[in-house]
Design a protein around this nucleic acid. Sequence first.
DNA 1: GGGCTAACAGAACGAACGTTCGTATGCCGA
DNA 2: TCGGCATACGAACGTTCGTTCTGTTAGCCC
Lengths: 208, 208
Amino acid sequence: MRTVGSNRNDTLRAIRQSAVKLIYEHGYEAMSLRLLAKDVGIQAGSLYNYIQSKQSFLYQLLKEITEESLVELTARLDGIDDPAARLRAFIAQHIAFHTRRPKEVFISNMELRSLSPKHYKAMVALRDRYQGCLREIIDGGIASGAFRVDDPGVATAAIIAMLAGPSVWYRAKGRHSLESLTEIYTGMVFDMLGGTRATTRRRVLRRA
Amino acid sequence: MRTVGSNRNDTLRAIRQSAVKLIYEHGYEAMSLRLLAKDVGIQAGSLYNYIQSKQSFLYQLLKEITEESLVELTARLDGIDDPAARLRAFIAQHIAFHTRRPKEVFISNMELRSLSPKHYKAMVALRDRYQGCLREIIDGGIASGAFRVDDPGVATAAIIAMLAGPSVWYRAKGRHSLESLTEIYTGMVFDMLGGTRATTRRRVLRRA
DNA sequence: GGGCTAACAGAACGAACGTTCGTATGCCGA
DNA sequence: TCGGCATACGAACGTTCGTTCTGTTAGCCC
């Protein structure tokens, strides 16, 4: 039968939303389709009107999440040339996405292990494109003399890792607003990249 | 029955080792006891000579891992008073443990979700004790004028997060030795904490 | 308002799940 | 050499798994 008010787009969105929550809570392998269906409000068998298999569903989910973060990042960096300004934009975007979509970020990092080898490679390539944006910014800053680091690769990894932290513990009602948190992290990153913090607006303001 | 050469201590160690690997690969909920038993080389039912339940087994496993890291850290910091020296010791210890036991670290971070509320609280308390060590070092350095930060709490979280990175991608045969990697991270951390890098032995060597 | 299709219910499949239990065998002290 | 404890087997319990299939109803078009 067809239940009252049922609609393909709404159901699909509900499935994705519930899946993110349940994979976050139980892990992909341990998320049963019956639990997912119950959370959506349909029967388990009905999920197969929307997914081809549990396995391919995971890939589609992770792929869309990562692609969305990449699209947002690209849009935000567009038109900015100065390495320091690009870095500030990257930091703000990264923290914003990670605090806005913490569960999506979590499962994108954790459940790559559950993908087939082919899908795993595709996801790693996507992630590398994202991290490559930061790497290019750092390399650009080094070339222009704005940054100074021991090892650009390690610095890239370190910055990515530390900026991902707030996705775990940030709460909107917490001690810091998103803006002040971004400022604090921005200051630390610029310090890491060779003490160029003094040339930024922020340091000037603080010293005033 | 009793199989040839079977021994309680050896079997227990094998169970722990296999469990870490399988939880790392599949997640706790998705790791079946039959798969664990097969990896150890015994039957599923025989596991219950060593565990009380799958649930309590997870807690014991995570608890021992975290306690071990805490014991190692405490031993390494023992007798060191200077904040900068204590920080260097913390960084070296953290990176060393995280690269030596990457799977243990991974599951300790990821599978807290699968613990009962009581066990979850106990694990968070343990983790907070560990992170509290870094926090005290930073606070001590601020008090002595060695460090300068915008927010000690955020700085603590940022350092913990960025130092955990290598546990994911570090390979012993890779581009960096553990020592040089530790040096690079040490430099970045000291930069983050107010540009006191110039006062460290490392910076002096580099400038020479 | 009658037919068409999109959307879902619900039963069913064999396999696998955590856990219990009775039984059998290796090992060690006497 | 032999009794007893330590250690593991392997069958069994009821439940749940991913997936397929058939049937039935709601919403839309003419």
